[in-house]
Design a protein around this nucleic acid. Structure first.
Length: 259
DNA sequence: ATGGTCGGATGCCGA
């Protein structure tokens, strides 16, 4: 079972590039972030003939997540529990069944800039809610994959220029600590488990020639419960996508599970 | 047209 995450930065702007990538990469399941569309306006027709079931959790203009699967989506749940007043579309769950049932959580974690400030407070509060949900999911003792744009640079080696991120919400010590608290429940960072070299990135800013200079950061992650980690057979980052016409500023990151 | 660069939605905001 091939499972991918891809922050597409707008479904309408990325329709062609996304479909091209789906045809080439042939993932079984995909978590999309920043669809920037309401559920009603989501262009389901662009996926016709590809065989994907689609579940969206969108909002107007900003954020928005979706799950695509060609092996079905069951028990879909929208929204991160823990705050009824939170109206930002950043979390969607579903179960996929291959050889094994796998619980998937597609997430778009708040950026949090500028820090300090209310946006950073929201990020940290959201991460604490995520930690509680992550702990709850572990108690199922089933394979769980939490994947998406975490907006977290876990360590200095995950940035080409770590010094330029020192005061940024993506790399502040409090942000990294909150991410580690989730990992330390018993989750595995799939990419780091398999790709130990420095210079592994998933995002290059549109500005200042970040891509041609390879000034990247690693912020798109797949966290695996112990039962999912036992099934991990491969990981990859489709970096080449970033050099095409009309790219997202993120690239797809994927895993292969024996499930 | 909107700072740099994009996307989405307007009369800039978020990233």
């Amino acid at each position: 079972m091939k499972i991918a995450t891809f922050n597409i930065n707008g479904i309408k702007a990325r329709a062609e590039a996304l479909v091209d990538w789906l045809r080439e990469a042939e993932p079984d399941v995909v978590a999309l972030q920043e669809i920037k569309s309401t559920d009603e306006a989501f262009p389901h027709e662009i996926f016709d003939g590809l065989g994907y079931t689609i579940e969206t959790f969108g909002q107007k203009s900003f954020n928005g997540v979706a799950l695509l699967s060609r092996i079905g989506l069951e028990d879909v749940r929208r929204g991160l529990p823990g705050d009824d007043r939170d109206d930002q579309a950043r979390w969607i769950e579903a179960t996929v069944v291959g050889k094994r049932a796998v619980r998937l959580c597609g997430l778009y974690l708040p950026n949090g800039n500028p820090a300090p400030g209310p946006k950073y407070d929201y990020k940290l509060a959201w991460m604490e809610r995520m930690r509680l949900r992550a702990a709850e999911l572990l108690r199922s003792e089933e394979p769980v994959v939490m994947l998406g744009d975490y907006n977290i640079i876990p360590q200095d080696e995950d940035a080409a220029k770590p010094e330029s991120w020192r005061e940024d919400a993506l790399a502040l010590p409090q942000s990294r600590a909150a991410f580690r608290r989730i990992l330390n429940l018993g989750y595995t960072d799939a990419v780091r488990a398999r790709m130990t070299d420095p210079g592994i990135y998933s995002f290059w800013d549109y500005q200042a020639g970040a891509w041609p200079r390879n000034n990247g950061i690693r912020i798109d992650h797949l966290l695996l419960s112990p039962q999912a980690a036992d099934l991990l057979s491969d990981v990859g980052i489709d970096k080449e996508i970033r050099g095409r016409d009309k790219p997202s500023d993120h690239v797809p990151v994927w895993i292969e599970l024996d499930a």
